[in-house]
Computed example of a mutant assay.
Amino acid sequence: MTASTESSTTLSPDMLGLKAKLKATWESGDYGVFAKYLEPGALTFLTGLKLTPGERYLDLACGAGQLVIPAARAGVEATGLDLAANLIAQARHRAAQESLNARFDEGDAEALPYPDARFDVVSSLFGVMFAPRPERIAAELLRVTRPGGRIVLGNWTPQSFIGGMFRVTGKHAPPSPLMPSPMLWGDEATVRERLGTGVRDVTFGRVAYPFEYPFDPAGVVEFYREFYGPTNRAFASLDTAAQAALRADLEAHWAEHNCSAQGTRLESELLIVRATRA
């Protein structure tokens, strides 16, 4: 098999519509700008992958290359895939500026364009958890990882700060009924069930992922509205009064958890999943 055999012709019209909406969502705002404040936690996650030069590494939902670019700098054979064409363009530009041997592909993590057992390490940092069909994500993770290779995921837990932020947003702009909660990827029993017998030596760890911004909670909400696709699209779907209500609730959520008198600083719980491909 040279790639996923799934075709768009096998998808229902409703699922095709949802996928188009998700692509538009992640192409909204500018995740490349948004992710700059997330870099410290992302680099900690990358260090935890313990990649070695020459390893074949795939990062799914790679954004503008926050993990792939530094991995390529370290001599890893690094590939990134993302649904958003604009982010892949940014990532390719960054790699070209540094003359890095990094590959970036626009594509769907539920139907990967890679051969079976292609990669030594496959990761996703709060990325594939937002795909609409977790069973397809699990199947593709297993398919493209070589036997004995490693799968590492960083997923927000249901009780995390970010889990709470999505619940706040969902009260004002409900998600599609076709979309299972992304936070289920942060539940250990659910992850074990999804990966099933395709993996061995599954371990879980919980870490506090840092968020730090030089502006107050109101400024953070505005930053998310401008640059973070899901928040950007949630606001755009509402009328003026409903936008004001969403803004007030999001500002209250950030203010409640803020630990800084100057700017905004807090942590959100992340479930780190590590598994070996059977």
Rank of each mutant, 00 (worst) to 15 (best):
R118H: 03
T79A: 05
A236E: 07
P214L: 06
V68A: 04
L238Y: 05
T9Y: 04
L46P: 09
A91H: 04
G205D: 15
D239M: 03
F104I: 10
G29S: 06
M15H: 07
L46V: 10
L266T: 10
R146G: 02
I272N: 09
M165T: 08
R136D: 15
P53S: 14
F130Y: 12
E269N: 14
G127V: 07
E55P: 00
C259E: 15
M183C: 01
V128F: 12
A91M: 13
L51D: 11
R274D: 11
A242E: 14
A234M: 01
P214K: 02
T10C: 02
S160A: 14
D14R: 15
S181Y: 08
V273T: 13
V121F: 06
E267C: 11
L142G: 08
G229Y: 08
P175E: 13
T197I: 08
A241L: 09
P134D: 11
A242R: 13
P182L: 01
D201W: 00
L67Y: 09
L100W: 09
R274K: 03
G229Q: 07
R73C: 14
R265W: 05
L238T: 00
G198L: 03
L22P: 01
F211S: 06
A252R: 08
F45E: 01
S260N: 05
G41E: 15
D187H: 06
G164C: 06
Q262D: 06
E39V: 15
D249Q: 06
R277T: 08
A3E: 15
